[in-house]
């Protein structure tokens, strides 16, 4: 059982109506892996991510977490184990930063108010926002909101963290602070599945980069290989363009 990968995706297929957006995706992630997904818009990368915690249901193939197919797990139980960070943050707008982080531990894990608050403050400290504990989302910058979003996911002690373009809604000067937090997490051994255009992050933190196009994996491999010596012309062109656009933000 110990050699079982944390995430196993096997021939995953998803269609919206007649349009097949994922056409047989297969890959595995070990513990502490950082898997980066890149690809042009419409390539299916966000859909793939959302299939993992079943925010989107899929029609064919299988995704297993720790050996158990996610379709056989209770969906709320699955989401307790898989945290998610959204492109547009989706912080609970009526709660302070601290309360945002406390809600899951309080209402899902059943922790006491005091224990949840203590944990929330620890997580805020980890993302460098102790001073903003009592600020509402409307009072935070985009970068701060996203760091609270990460802290909110971390407070649930997830086995796996999903990032859906976490920096795409940010002003360029705010991207750095979020990427820094993500790199710290990767270094600390968090297992992460990340859809991003941040090539700086991919180069520095990814164990594997996967290039998706039109619902299939074009190629994947460690960053050195994909950046320096890709097999496909398409991969080379796409990564080069992304690096030009998003590689030098820090």
């Amino acid at each position: 059982m110990s050699d079982e990968p944390l995430v196993r995706v096997d021939d995953l297929r998803k269609r919206y109506g007649d349009e097949e957006v994922l056409r047989g995706i297969s890959f595995e992630m070990g513990r502490q892996d950082v898997q980066v997904l890149v690809g042009p818009s419409g390539s299916g990368k966000s859909t793939l991510l959302r299939c993992v915690n079943r925010l989107t249901e899929f029609q064919g193939g299988e995704i297993a977490l720790d050996g158990t197919p996610v379709t056989e797990m209770d969906v709320d139980d699955l989401r307790r184990q898989v945290g998610m960070v959204f492109q547009d943050f989706n912080l609970f707008a009526h709660l302070t930063a601290k309360e945002n982080i406390m809600l899951g531990p309080r209402r899902v894990l059943g922790k006491s108010e005091a224990a949840a608050a203590e944990r929330a403050l620890d997580e805020l400290d980890r993302v460098g926002l102790s001073a903003q504990a009592d600020s509402y989302p409307g009072e935070l910058s985009g970068g701060q909101k996203q760091r609270v979003g990460i802290a909110r996911a971390l407070a649930m002690d997830p086995k796996l963290l999903l990032f859906d373009e976490p920096t795409s809604a940010l002003d360029p000067e705010l991207i750095g602070e979020v990427v820094e937090v993500m790199e710290d997490l990767a270094e600390g051994g968090m297992t992460m599945l990340v859809v991003t255009h941040e090539m700086g992050f991919a180069r520095a933190a990814a164990t594997d980069i996967m290039f998706l196009d039109q619902g299939t994996i074009v190629e994947h491999g460690p960053p050195e290989k994909l950046f320096e010596n890709p097999e496909h012309e398409r991969t080379a062109q796409f990564l080069e363009r992304l690096t030009r656009l998003h590689g030098e933000t820090r």
Binding site: N53, D76, F86, N90, F92, L103, R107, V108
Partner: peptide, 17 residues
């Protein structure tokens, strides 16, 4: 915003929660 409900579900709250 529908993202609010989705974020609640993603944290592990039920639809009702």
């Amino acid at each position: 915003d529908p993202g609010q409900l989705e974020a609640g579900r993603a944290v592990g709250l039920s639809q009702f929660g």
